[in-house]
């Protein structure tokens, strides 16, 4: 199904692309005036560029902000949900170390979506990879398929969830790129919280966006680029 969709999108893109670009500048991606929105657009590809040279090992602000925004406990046991986590990597020969946040990489070709038996794992038109918790049966195939260990399973009953971020026992969850904030025109909580401005969020397809220009001028990497998943999250300075 996703194949057909991609082709269709591609077709629409190429056929009406020229016209769309002519009218698009200045047009909002969302119309929130009446509390109604147009929905996700396939012209958009949300992504992030993480500058690891600005990310410090002792700082956990992005993680804390994520936990608060999404109502996670902040625990780090195997059974606790972690949507974003800090990891330290070190080149054993040179001793050069990096600290970086790791989360769902919002792949263009997400393995979690491939293995999902119920189509609960899906990629939204604007590139955000999500779990539709209404369809998730908790089989956790996606957790095993993910090369980034980015997904968590909710093991226990939860109470008093954030109204904007429903979560519940028996389903798999992960970084949603703060989809509820994006749809309101805000940026993800982690990007907002980073005091070193190490997380640049934006539309990888928008030629006027900062991220579009930056990924074209500075060297950046995709983690496990060899898997050819074309991640939406890129890292600079590794």
């Amino acid at each position: 199904m996703s194949d057909i969709n991609t082709q269709r999108r591609q077709f629409i893109k190429t056929s009406v692309g020229a016209a769309a670009i002519a009218i698009a500048p200045g047009m909002m991606l969302y119309a929130t005036a009446h509390g109604k929105s147009e929905g996700a657009s396939s012209k958009v590809r949300w992504g992030m560029l993480v500058d690891t040279t600005q990310c410090t090992p002792d700082c956990n602000d992005c993680v804390t902000a994520c936990n608060k925004e999404n109502g996670l406990s902040g625990g780090t046991k195997a059974t606790d949900s972690q949507w974003i986590r800090k990891i330290e990597i070190k080149d054993v020969r040179t001793g050069v170390a990096h600290s970086l946040p790791m989360m769902c990489q919002h792949c263009e070709h997400p393995p979690c979506v491939d293995v999902c038996p119920t189509q609960a794992s899906f990629k939204r038109a604007d590139g955000i990879v999500l779990v539709d918790r209404h369809l998730c049966i908790g089989c956790r195939y996606c957790m095993m398929a993910c090369p980034y260990k980015a997904r968590s399973f909710v093991h226990e009953t939860l109470e008093d969830q954030n109204p904007d971020v429903p979560r519940g026992k028996g389903t798999v969850e992960a970084c949603s790129l703060c989809v509820h904030r994006i749809d309101k025109g805000q940026i993800p909580a982690c990007a907002e919280a980073c005091k070193n401005k190490a997380i640049l969020f934006g539309d990888l397809n928008d030629a006027n966006s900062e991220i579009y220009k930056k990924v074209r001028t500075v060297a950046s990497d995709q983690i496990r680029a060899d898997l050819q998943l074309n991640t939406g999250i890129r890292y600079q300075g590794l």
């Binding site: 509390g35 109604k36 929105s37 539709d132 749809d183």
Partner: peptide, 11 residues
């Protein structure tokens, strides 16, 4: 509509 397509209608 909301989850799959991002169409949010607050009402």
């Amino acid at each position: 509509e909301t989850v799959r397509k991002g169409v949010r209608d607050e009402q």
